[in-house]
Amino acid sequence: MQSNNRSAPARQKARHPAGVDSAPVRLKLLFVIIARGKAEFFSDLLQSFSVNLQMSVGAQGTANTDMLRLLGLSDSDKAVLVAVIREDRAAEALSLLDEKFRTIKGGKGIAYTVPMDSVIGVAIYRFLADLDA
């Protein structure tokens, strides 16, 4: 019984911003691969989708750029943004990212979401899901 009482907060249902009891909002990992110079722009963009945690990692593209590099034309420097996003905001975020990839000069990239199974800690979950305290 004691262990049940201890784990009760962990099983407490998350509350939607509207205050309605419902199943916890699922989370996804959102990967965005873009030119390094655009990392800040896309990072700011993601923040408008209830994203409270994101990491930016420097990376390199693997294109065959030997000749281009000789000519000083290569730009294989990339950034990978890894963000935790609510499942119900993911489609909307991907849609806007797709639009920006197609319309911004030098802003082409790839974005995809990967499902997340588990998070430990209610406070961490609420932070990641951007739920009201």
């Binding site: 991907l94 990212l97 990239g109 995809y112 990967v114």
Partner: peptide, 9 residues
């Protein structure tokens, strides 16, 4: 790893 949705391809 499975991927749910992809954009940019």
């Amino acid at each position: 790893v499975p991927v749910d949705q992809v954009v940019g391809l």
